[in-house]
Nucleic acid binder design. Structure first.
Lengths: 155, 155
DNA sequence: TATTGTTATACTCTATAACTATA
DNA sequence: TATAGTTATAGAGTATAACAATA
């Protein structure tokens, strides 16, 4: 009764498979991250924020919210926490006294570089069944999703 | 200084792109779901639970926890909520008086079928830039991630 | 003794609304 | 008047630990 949908549409199946692959990958990343046994807890969202600040070197909280697709309040929340963990610094924006710039601390830079290394390792392991050409094909196919759209969001 | 990594490893880039595509897709699904304007709120996790119960027709809370990769406590939480929304029913398992079977209500079945229809629509739209062959290629490439691994988790 | 699900409790992530300070 | 970030508050999702009922 429930599973009568034998000739299910290919489109939905393909999308499901892609999401499944993505969840699987994220699961691997998270598992490896806790295995890293960092002095501070670097969850997915916290890490994503750190990496985004890192890429910009210095960035307004405002702009960060937009890039991450989060609300200002959420950025304040994370930054409070990351600041008290000694990972991020608030700097008054000299050009606009309402604004606040964010910058990573030395400690955060160390963590980021470690995490990035691990991410490379995991990525390579995840792609071990792929030939160079298959990787290239997959990359090009995935680009088709963003056909025409401007995508900026990170991680 | 921060972005000196010009020749970044292809593997990490490809994985990032896949995750980005996945986030984009999930975003589309969530947006369409709220646009459906259902009588009850069907968030991602709640929907995933409903769909998993639906696929099994009837399932133990226990088994559901494993399939979804969640803890028993979390299942109790969701089921309490879905039950009070009239979407799910707890049935004592006749074979084991410790266990509880879950089943969808008629109302939930209506919602599930509507949601599945929408998911097909969105999936087709997301794949509009793909030729039949490109879809097939993508599907086969994605399968490589699960090379040898037994993957069951849904949605 | 082990397993199923629950009560009690808590943490993380995210957000809305009202407010302060600046622009 | 509009914008940047904060305080106060809340809701969703998930989990650990202790426990009850049953196996």
């Amino acid at each position: 009764m429930a599973n009568e949908d034998a000739n299910a549409p290919k489109a939905a199946e393909l999308i499901q498979l892609l999401l499944r692959a993505s969840h699987y990958i994220q699961h691997e990343f998270e598992a490896q991250l806790v295995a890293l046994d960092m002095p501070v807890q670097l969850s997915g969202p916290r890490l994503r924020l750190l990496l985004t600040v890192w890429k910009s070197d210095t960035i307004r909280m405002n702009e960060l919210a937009i890039k991450l697709g989060l609300k200002a309040r959420t950025i304040t929340e994370h930054v409070d926490s990351l600041e008290s963990d000694g990972l991020i610094t608030r700097i008054p924006d000299p050009k606009d006294r309402r604004a606040t710039l964010l910058q990573l601390t030395e400690e955060a830079l160390t963590h980021v570089s470690r995490v990035r290394y691990i991410q490379e390792q995991i990525s390579e392991r995840l792609l071990q069944s792929f030939s160079a050409e298959q990787s290239k094909d997959l990359y090009e196919l995935l680009t088709l999703f963003f056909d025409g759209k401007e995508i900026d969001f990170v991680c």
